[in-house]
Write a protein that binds this DNA or RNA. Sequence first.
DNA 1: ATGACTATATTCTATAGA
Length: 290
Amino acid sequence: MRIATYNINGVNRRLENLLSWLEVVRPDVVCLQELKAETSAFPIEAIEAVGYGAVWQGQRSWNGVAILARGATPVLTRRALPSDRYDEQARYIEAAVNGILFASLYAPNGNPRPGPKFDYKLAWMKRLIDHAGGLVAAGVPVVLAGDYNIVPTDDDIYPGHREADNALLQPESRVTFERLLSQGWGDSLRAVYPQGPLWTFWGYLRHRWRDDKGMRLDHLLLSPSLQPRLAAAGVSREARAAEGASDHAPVWIELAPVRKAPAATSGPSRSRSTARSRGRKRPMTERARR
DNA sequence: ATGACTATATTCTATAGA
């Protein structure tokens, strides 16, 4: 199952970029952010025409989130975070597809700092953490996908940057991301690529794309039960390189199918995988202790 | 300190983004 998150930066302005990317990558589920369109202006007919169903929450001018599913309509579970007093800001939508719960979230930017926008960023993240904690406690399989507007570590921004005042890098911002992970969520891109550049955003200003000076802002967090199924991950840089592209690239993961319990009549394929697991090295923690 | 770039609404200018 291929899952992607994509800050599209205007779903109507970039509809052709979105459709051509969908037709090439064919993800099973896509979480979109920054629709920049009212709910009534979401291009559902064009999206259905390439084989996707969708749920979405729009807003005039800014924000806006959606969840797309190939060959299915996601089952909506909520259109905002609980106790969200800022419902006019369309930043969260949640829906189930094939037994997995998906959230598409667009966290506040928070600049300039200090100020009310930074306060709102931290307050919104606290509401996300409260809700996410409930999802982990419930034990359901969940993917929290979206633009978190947080650079988690110094390894997630181009070297030599001068962004020290940026709300996306502040310790208070990073702590909220760490609190999420400490609930048990797995940062899937870093699970596959533990170190090194993994940019998902390159600003339009100052030739950031040409110079490959990016940041990692878009994250796919997996609930504990899904983490063993993580098979591959990547950033669709070709979409950022395209004409008229969003300033974000799509980020994707591949989840392996659920392994079925061995049936009594299982054939030769089972013995092969058993042999492979027998030859596996001992876990890192065990080796490290010696 | 400012603007550079790209978007939408407030539209020959302002606001937001990151």
